[in-house]
């Protein structure tokens, strides 16, 4: 069974009285442990597709099965709970909470779990060690470089040990060196920890690190490109 199965999904937005189509009858399957890169020009619908897979937006029609659950049918509360347990998010602009330290930012999603303080601490320390920031736990986001902030964001994404990680332009705001570090980290999460990763990117260098690259254009999914 595919980890993610998107079937005949359409998505359109209402602008005043006009319906603007963003995704046209898209179907895609992502296997367990796959590293998928979604590429395409601006407005092609790649971020919309990522948002639908991550359960932060709803399709106009079609079904999205993630590990057998049709997330399009879940209510808001159930969907929020599902996201907390199953999906790790990485954003282009890191989206860390500026008043919290690196440790506290990573701990944030764990606050929704039933873990004890000690268990949370252990989990946060492990996640920060994985991203190589064990020595920066007490630093606040503004004391960290862009690459380091993104690594904290990755630690936050993996803190709950989700099966799926979605990343929206994770290298979009980084210099080349930092971008390489981030991509190496994502590769490691995929290969070493078996995480299924769906990444949206404009950056061909980043896309090269994915196992599968799919292109979108004007809401249509183009042919598959599989790498060894």
């Amino acid at each position: 069974m595919a980890a993610i199965s998107v079937t005949n999904v359409t998505k359109s937005y209402q602008r005043d009285k006009t319906s603007v189509p963003v995704l046209n009858d898209v179907s895609i399957s992502v296997q367990q442990g796959e590293f998928l890169a979604l590429m395409g020009p601006s407005g092609s619908g790649k971020t919309t597709l990522l948002n639908l897979i991550a359960g932060i937006d709803r399709p106009t029609s079609g079904s999205i099965l993630v590990q057998g659950i049709d997330i399009a049918t879940l209510g808001e509360t159930a969907l929020a709970k599902w996201r907390a347990q199953k999906v790790g998010f990485i954003f282009q602009f890191y989206n860390l909470i500026p008043v919290l330290s690196a440790f506290e930012n990573v701990e944030l999603p764990l606050m929704l779990t039933s873990l004890s303080k000690k268990e949370r601490k252990q989990q946060v320390e492990t996640a920060l060690s994985v991203v190589g920031l064990a020595d920066r736990m007490t630093h606040s986001p503004n004391q960290l470089s862009g690459g380091q902030q993104q690594r904290v964001a990755i630690a936050r994404a993996i803190a709950t040990d989700p099966d799926i990680i979605v990343a929206d332009e994770p290298t979009g705001d980084l210099d080349k060196l930092s971008a390489d570090e981030i991509m190496t980290l994502l590769e490691r999460l995929n290969s070493e920890f078996g995480k299924t990763i769906v990444m949206v990117t404009h950056d061909p260098r980043a896309a090269e690190r994915a196992k599968v690259v799919r292109h979108l254009d004007k809401g249509d999914l183009l042919a598959e490109e599989v790498r060894s």
């Binding site: 991550a54 932060i56 808001e76 929020a80 996201r83 907390a84 998010f89 989206n95 929704l112 936050r156």
Partner: peptide
């Protein structure tokens, strides 16, 4: 606004 969206994304409820 963006932070609240991030919190919602992470699974925090209304």
């Amino acid at each position: 606004t963006r932070e609240y969206a991030v919190l919602k994304t992470l699974g925090f409820s209304g």
